[in-house]
Each structure stands twice: as C-alpha cells, then as structure tokens.
C-alpha cells in the first residue's frame, strides 16, 4: 500500500495538496496544529487508495509530505531513484 505521511506541525492548511490528488483523498481535518493552522489529512480508511504519485508533495510549499510508494513484487527498485537506500519491508 502506498501512503503519505504529513509532518503536521509544518502544515499551513493552504489546501493546495487537496486540489492535485488524483484520488481526492486529502481533505481538511478538524485538527489544528500548534501554529494555529487547520491541517489536512487523508480521511480514515482512504489511505489504501493512495497511488504514491507524490503530486501532493510536489505542490506542497512547506515540504510537509513524505510519500512511500509500494514496489510490486519482482519489480526492482531502480538504482539512483530516490529512496533506493531506504527501501524496506513494510510491516
């Protein structure tokens, strides 16, 4: 399962990520961070729709989002690609 992780304290709630997610799974949460911004989240249960496309991370002005992409069994992690050295088994 691909997934995104938000660094909540950096989010300024600009919502640009909500506009570019092809699955439309990112939305404003009810939560507020210590900076006083209402922050985004992937609604509960919707993370499995994430394709790991990283569009949300690319448009985020605050580098809030780290994206983990599922590597299909048998598909090599290409040398030089970001994250090659940290490829790991998830759970």
């Amino acid at each position: 399962m691909s997934r995104v992780v938000f660094l909540k304290e950096r989010c300024k709630g600009c919502l640009l990520c909500t506009q570019v997610c092809p699955k439309g799974i990112i939305a404003l949460s009810g939560e507020m961070n210590q900076q006083g911004y209402k922050i985004v989240e992937v609604a509960p249960g919707k993370m499995e729709q994430c394709t790991g496309c990283a569009s949300c991370a690319m448009i985020c002005p605050d580098t809030v989002i780290t994206v983990y992409k599922t590597v299909k069994p048998g598909q090599p992690v290409k040398p030089g690609e970001p994250g090659e050295e940290v490829a790991r088994v998830n759970g």
Partner: peptide
Amino acid sequence: MTEKIAFERPKPLADRATH
C-alpha cells in the same frame, strides 16, 4: 510488501518551518 520513498525533503533544504 516492499516500499520505497517516492518523495522526501531534499537534503539541502533545512528541516524547519518557513516564514
């Protein structure tokens, strides 16, 4: 299942909130 990091903060970018 294996996963890789598809996007993360580039290393030259400071790990801090911007103004």
